[in-house]
Amino acid sequence: MNEKTKSFLFKGWILLSTLIVLAIVFYIFGYILSNGIESINMEFLLDGPSGIPVGSQGGIFPAIVGSLLLMLISCVFASILAISTSIYLVFYCESERIKGLIHLITQCMSGVPSIILGLFGYTFLVLYLNLGRSVLAGGLTLGFMIYPFIQVRVEKTLLEVDKSIINSSYALGISRTYTLFKLILPICKSDIVSAITLAGGFAMGAASPIILTAAVTFAPIPSSLSSPVMALPFHLYILTGEGISLEKAYGTALVLILLLLIINIISTIINITRKEHK
């Protein structure tokens, strides 16, 4: 094969690949949007599911609220743990060996599939600790899942703060804690918030950790942390898996994707305003 043919084939290959990827992106959105848009109306968004079997009529309001609740709980839980661990690793831990060990454990954890976490959540939280299928058990399980995601990003952000800026605070005789709260965290705030929102979106879309720990086919808006909930990804799974209503499934998928898109946009806006700030 001469150089010209080779170059031609090569270019054909990479061009085709890119077109395929772009086509997939557009196809998925087009597909969900065009099929789902008709199902969406005020009734669908604000009513509970009804009909026989449940879900074939009515709306998905409890699932929207449930998903947001699960996201909130998982974010709060995981952020507290992840931010503390990151602060410890960056500012207090002096032993390289402990740092390495914690990094290793976190990295292994990020490779554990979400269903294994679901399995743990189901057996330990739901059965042993007797939390039952509940918002709390599901939120915590999702929290385990997003913990490594937040931890890695927050630690990176903290490490990126200019060392000489931190030193000039210490040089003023100012303590670590004050420096952390009044200087470092304000500088990192938007990066941290954006990491948490991204993780929240990730948690909201996940079905496998909550199938066993929180989600049910039908429930009203939870009245307490120990109530079971409906959730968008699980609802979508049930609607399709049991063949209840294709039309409602399209609508649910669209709402889920739109919610995630909104979360993504919020996170991007937070990042952009920060860049302008600098």
Binding site: S164, S168, A171, L172, G173, I174, L183, K278
Partner: peptide
Amino acid sequence: DIRRMIGMVFQTPTPFP
């Protein structure tokens, strides 16, 4: 206290953002 009584300025300017 020592650092408060003995102030320091660094090579490159380090204004807080």
